[in-house]
Simulated assay, not measured.
Amino acid sequence: MLATKSNSYTFQKDGIWYFSRRVPADLRRHYRTSRIAYSLRTKSIRDARVRAMTDAAKLDRHWHWKDLSAKIATDPLILLSTGIGDVPYSMAVRLAL
């Protein structure tokens, strides 16, 4: 039987579920703290897991673009090497500036 690790990024306090996620070390200069934590405003574990995974995915996308934009600032040609074909031209220009 395979065991899978499920990281739900949640913890419970006084019956309310919270989201908690560490900020990646290379992006910490953009944040005041090294951890993002806030209430998911639910007592339901099912709702908390869904909200937490949705929020984690949004953070991953945000952090990916923040990291990519920092790389583009130093080398605009990195867009060609990343293989990202669905980046709109306006975004590529904005990220390169």
Results as ranks from 00 to 15, higher is better:
residue 29 R to Q: 10
residue 32 R to F: 07
residue 2 L to D: 15
residue 83 G to D: 08
residue 49 R to Y: 04
residue 66 K to F: 07
residue 94 R to A: 07
residue 28 R to N: 07
residue 37 A to F: 01
residue 63 W to Y: 11
residue 7 N to K: 13
residue 30 H to G: 10
residue 96 A to F: 05
residue 79 L to R: 15
residue 60 D to R: 07
residue 86 D to F: 01
residue 79 L to T: 04
residue 19 F to L: 00
residue 5 K to T: 11
residue 42 T to R: 00
residue 36 I to G: 00
residue 1 M to D: 14
residue 34 S to D: 06
residue 70 A to S: 13
residue 51 R to S: 00
residue 4 T to W: 08
residue 32 R to C: 08
residue 3 A to S: 09
residue 65 W to K: 09
residue 49 R to L: 07
residue 78 I to G: 03
residue 87 V to C: 13
residue 56 A to T: 03
residue 77 L to Y: 06
residue 84 I to G: 07
residue 19 F to E: 00
residue 41 R to F: 10
residue 81 S to W: 12
residue 14 D to G: 03
residue 26 D to E: 14
residue 26 D to V: 09
residue 60 D to K: 07
residue 19 F to D: 00
residue 76 P to E: 06
residue 7 N to I: 05
residue 57 A to Y: 03
residue 97 L to V: 06
residue 22 R to I: 04
residue 59 L to M: 13
residue 10 T to V: 01
residue 5 K to F: 11
residue 48 A to S: 02
residue 82 T to I: 14
residue 55 D to R: 07
residue 35 R to Y: 09
residue 12 Q to G: 01
residue 92 A to C: 12
residue 90 S to E: 12
residue 7 N to S: 09
residue 14 D to R: 04
residue 95 L to M: 13
residue 86 D to N: 05
residue 47 D to P: 05
residue 43 K to F: 02
residue 53 M to R: 10
residue 29 R to N: 11
residue 25 A to T: 03
residue 79 L to W: 15
residue 69 S to G: 11
residue 56 A to I: 00
residue 85 G to Y: 06
residue 45 I to L: 09
residue 47 D to I: 06
residue 47 D to E: 05
residue 80 L to K: 11
residue 87 V to S: 14
residue 51 R to H: 02
residue 54 T to A: 04
residue 45 I to C: 08
residue 46 R to W: 06
residue 87 V to M: 15
residue 62 H to E: 15
residue 66 K to W: 13
residue 7 N to Y: 01
residue 21 R to C: 08
residue 46 R to V: 12
residue 53 M to I: 11
residue 30 H to Q: 14
residue 7 N to W: 02
residue 56 A to K: 07
residue 49 R to H: 14
residue 5 K to I: 08
residue 74 T to W: 08
residue 24 P to V: 04
residue 37 A to R: 02
residue 50 V to E: 08
residue 61 R to M: 01
residue 23 V to P: 03
residue 54 T to D: 13
residue 23 V to K: 08
residue 88 P to I: 08
residue 14 D to I: 01
residue 4 T to E: 09
residue 47 D to M: 02
residue 63 W to N: 02
residue 73 A to H: 15
residue 32 R to Y: 08
residue 64 H to S: 12
residue 9 Y to W: 00
residue 15 G to F: 00
residue 81 S to G: 13
residue 81 S to K: 13
residue 90 S to V: 13
residue 29 R to V: 10
residue 58 K to H: 05
residue 24 P to L: 03
residue 21 R to L: 08
residue 32 R to E: 09
residue 23 V to F: 10
residue 21 R to Y: 07
residue 75 D to W: 04
residue 92 A to M: 14
residue 93 V to W: 12
residue 41 R to W: 03
residue 54 T to Q: 11
residue 88 P to G: 10
residue 56 A to Y: 00
residue 64 H to Y: 15
residue 47 D to F: 01
residue 77 L to D: 12
residue 39 S to V: 01
residue 29 R to Y: 10
residue 47 D to G: 01
residue 8 S to P: 02
residue 62 H to P: 04
residue 7 N to F: 02
residue 84 I to T: 12
residue 92 A to R: 14
residue 46 R to N: 09
residue 57 A to R: 10
residue 67 D to I: 11
residue 53 M to N: 13
residue 79 L to M: 15
residue 11 F to R: 02
residue 59 L to E: 14
residue 94 R to T: 06
residue 70 A to N: 12
residue 70 A to V: 12
residue 38 Y to M: 01
residue 22 R to F: 05
residue 84 I to C: 14
residue 79 L to A: 13
residue 42 T to M: 00
residue 74 T to C: 05
residue 49 R to Q: 12
residue 6 S to R: 12
